[in-house]
């Protein structure tokens, strides 16, 4: 048994611009003598796809839509992105717990295993700074999907999926620890990796790497996040 093949990436809408990058070497102001300081590029994530998505993805999307409608959360799926053979469902923030339950229990979906929850921080994407990303696996149908929830930094709350997937317990604690996303309904949302009294959420983009300069004979090398860089 292998993963069923999917078609080529489905037709996609123009990408979604989430940030702008300026300059080239991470140098700003008068320190820039390279002449590249005026460069400006967009950071563009893959845009929403339109059906058909190809292969089994259509079955999952249709079944999810039907199940969501039956459960009264028909507008739960904000958009669907198919990129490089992987499908991502963007789920409305308030519906994630309900959708997770549908995905696990619906006979056409049967995503029994939650591989984990992780966070991504896009500081420049106003109102959608924090993303919680869930990877689900259906062992019955041998399919993988990804759920993504966008959360505003000003109100970093999202419902926990622990009731459906107990395995998300530590994953959500870790995401809280690193990104400050508060999972409502989690049995004990405390820090897991960092000490309990640690200030801040270290894997957010606005949290510095926290390295110290390294001293050599006659030279000091700054930590990696303060060095010149190429992006």
């Amino acid at each position: 048994m292998t993963l069923e093949p999917t078609g080529p990436d489905a037709a996609t809408a123009p990408g979604e611009v989430i940030a702008r990058r300026e300059g080239m070497f991470g140098v700003h102001g008068t320190g820039d003598t390279s002449g590249y300081g005026g460069l400006s590029t967009h950071v563009e994530l893959p845009g929403a796809s339109t059906p058909p998505y190809g292969g089994w993805m259509d079955e999952v999307a249709t079944a999810l839509q039907a199940a969501a409608a039956a459960a009264g959360v028909e507008s739960a799926v904000e958009k669907v992105v198919v990129y490089r053979g992987e499908i991502t469902f963007f789920i409305r923030r308030e519906d994630i717990a309900a959708v997770a339950k549908l995905l696990r229990d619906d006979v056409l979906l049967r995503f029994e295993l939650c591989s984990g929850v992780s966070g991504v921080h896009y500081p420049d994407d106003a109102g959608r700074e924090l993303h919680a990303v869930y990877h689900l696996l259906s062992m019955t149908h041998n399919r993988r999907i990804r759920l993504e929830v966008t959360i505003p930094d000003a109100d970093p709350h999202v419902d926990s999926v622990c009731a459906t997937y107990p395995t998300a317990d530590w994953h959500e604690r870790e995401t809280f620890d690193f990104f400050g996303i508060i999972f409502d309904g989690h049995p004990a949302l405390t820090r897991i990796q960092m000490p309990d009294d640690w200030p801040g959420h270290p894997q957010r983009k606005d949290y510095p790497l926290g390295g110290i300069p390294v001293e050599y004979k006659g030279a000091t090398v700054p930590p990696p996040d303060e060095r010149r860089s190429y992006n």
Partner: peptide, 16 residues
Amino acid sequence: HVVSDGGTRPYRVHFR
């Protein structure tokens, strides 16, 4: 879980 923003460095990598 590898996330790229189109740059020369990973935007975010999370290991399950």
